[in-house]
Design a binder for these strands. Structure first.
Lengths: 214, 214
DNA sequence: TCAAAAGTGTTCAGGGTACACCCATGG
DNA sequence: CCATGGGTGTACCCTGAACACTTTTGA
């Protein structure tokens, strides 16, 4: 390595994951209750240090996998947070990621083992570090991207009803939508294949199950 | 410091600045020809290491100031780039920022001393590292944010003509705009104060100078 | 007098929003 | 038989796009 590098400081770098999932019609985030200092017994995002030979994206995937047992989950980088005193224990620069997953896919045992809990957005406890800012930015990012990419389907199983799909939009945007306008828009915006299966879990009449075609 | 941290790797962290300016009606980026290894004599973005006790934002401001002599310039974080081999000299995690400045404000002497040059977007030389990706992402970010925040004024002096303003939009978006539609939209979108001063530098008739009111 | 940029309104189409009723079924 | 969620079409408005001519003045 050139001496050019050696004279500079090196830093701990972590990734923090804002893990979004839909639960009981509400947008939830997966939080952990810290078992170690600093911030023991306080709520925070799930995070981990970036190790040698590990890219930022890989570190984020690893952290998510540790907590949920899931792989191939949709993740996006939200931004880097590098205030000097953001972590009271040491100077740590953190890169935040958000993950969007189908609530039912997770490994509940792992989640429990990690001292983690799903919390609805409007019931968030006080978070440690600068994690409130990170959550805020992730949410803003999610809401923006919702209009640009077909992210909603990440929250749903492969087969879903249009009402479920609408529920995701409403939960993420935090507002009610008109059913007819929603269906018109979504069916011309996305390639949705109507299957001949009917879901009866949420109504007596039953609703057609759809599949999203990429 | 808790032992919790010590077992983890530490990394060099740098900031790289995508410095945008408008020159001769085109969107330009300020590039430097590297004087040191790795990548000596190749073109790259201006960057610098994040030091102890320095936040990411502060590091970006410092780097920009070193190169241009400017302070209080509009900067935004574009994202973090952390592939393991992105820098062939060492493992360096980089956080990219973009800066928007008025071309005429810079300290040209400093720019020259730093071996830097303004290059139009469509004349970009091959860039070192993963800097092409960074530039691409910064440009995408800039074009997106253009519709959300009053960024255009960062490229202009305090007083400007509507034609200059339109020129900025056209240069950033890379497309011609309709004059009447542009003027209608911009005057109802922003609070523009028409001064009684006339700019004659670009036409015989002269154009009114406007001021942007925050 | 002419070249070159400044300045100025109207028309039209398409997308987004508001809005109400019948259907199928399980309990 | 009724409560519950599923499913469907139209009218209106407003925003965004297309479009051409007059004005001023320095060279």
């Amino acid at each position: 390595m050139h001496s050019y590098y050696r004279e500079h400081a090196r830093h701990y770098v972590s990734v923090d994951c804002v893990i979004f999932g839909l639960h009981e019609g509400k947008l939830n985030i997966l939080l952990i209750k810290r078992r170690m200092m600093p911030g023991r017994d306080k709520w925070s995002l799930m995070g981990g240090f970036v190790e040698q030979g590990e890219s930022l994206d890989d570190a984020a995937k690893r952290v998510l996998h540790q907590l949920t047992g899931l792989e191939n989950v949709y993740m996006d980088q939200v931004g880097a947070f590098g205030d000097v005193d953001r972590d009271p224990g040491a100077r740590v620069i953190s890169v935040a990621y958000c993950a969007l997953l189908n609530f039912d896919d997770q490994d509940h045992q792992r989640v429990t083992d990690n001292n983690a809990r799903w919390v609805a957005l409007d019931e968030m406890p006080e978070l440690f570090f600068d994690h409130p800012r990170i959550v805020e930015k992730a949410l803003e990012y999610l809401r923006q991207q919702l209009h640009r990419k077909p992210l909603v389907f990440q929250f749903l199983p492969e087969l879903f009803t249009l009402s479920q799909l609408q529920g995701v939009y409403e939960a993420v945007l935090g507002e009610k939508l008109d059913k007819r306008n929603f269906r018109k828009r979504v069916t011309e915006l996305y390639d949705l294949e109507k299957t001949d299966m009917i879901d009866k879990s949420s109504s007596k009449r039953g609703a057609s199950l759809y599949k999203f075609i990429i």
